[in-house]
């Protein structure tokens, strides 16, 4: 238990950095989406601004990346929506145990997303391209999923360790 505690303190600054970088990426993706959508409208009326056919597909792909990366951020902030209505009626230990189970389940999901997502991206990437951009492989459309899986895995591990630590702490109080 002391071991876990030590690790957590040591990795925290690293996690802060990863969080910052991921957040930065999400902001950039959001900005890119807004700019491309504005460009589409501007290009329709202002002759020298292009109204590219790829705008829709690019916007949607950026959104996919933003979705999975930001979703992982919410894991660290423990912000995901869940049923907490009965928490106040349950013993803290039971709640923490259920947290740990849920953490493990999400870890499993993250691994599935990484493995299956990677395999699928490669598989489909070798077979197709974006409709509006024949030179860009469809790999990039689906690569969001394994990438998001990695981000989920990283942030979920920290949360799991914290919950395990908390679980031991409760035990000692008893």
């Amino acid at each position: 238990m002391a071991g876990i505690f030590g690790i957590l303190n040591k990795i925290k600054p690293v996690y802060d950095q990863i969080y910052k970088i991921t957040l930065f990426l999400c902001k950039m993706l959001l900005i890119a989406d807004i700019l491309v959508a504005t460009l589409t409208v501007a290009g329709r009326y202002i002759p020298f601004i292009p109204d590219p056919a790829w705008s829709e597909e690019v916007i949607l792909s950026c959104m996919a990346y933003m979705t999975v990366l930001s979703g992982a951020l919410a894991i660290r902030r423990r912000a995901h929506i869940r049923m907490t209505a009965f928490d106040k009626f349950l013993p803290e230990k039971l709640v923490t145990i259920s947290d740990v189970i849920s953490d493990i389940a999400v870890l499993v999901l993250a691994i599935v997303l990484i493995v299956v997502g990677w395999r699928y991206s490669v598989e489909i990437g070798s077979k197709g391209s974006y409709v509006s951009m024949p030179n860009v492989s469809r790999f990039w459309m689906y690569f969001a999923v394994p990438l998001g899986g990695i981000a989920m895995l990283i942030f979920q591990i920290e949360v799991l360790l914290e919950n395990i630590e908390k679980l031991f702490a409760i035990k000692e109080e008893i």
Partner: peptide, 11 residues
């Protein structure tokens, strides 16, 4: 159409 094709081609 593209979703369907992705499903079929991606195994």
């Amino acid at each position: 159409e593209n979703d369907v094709l992705d499903t079929m081609l991606g195994g």
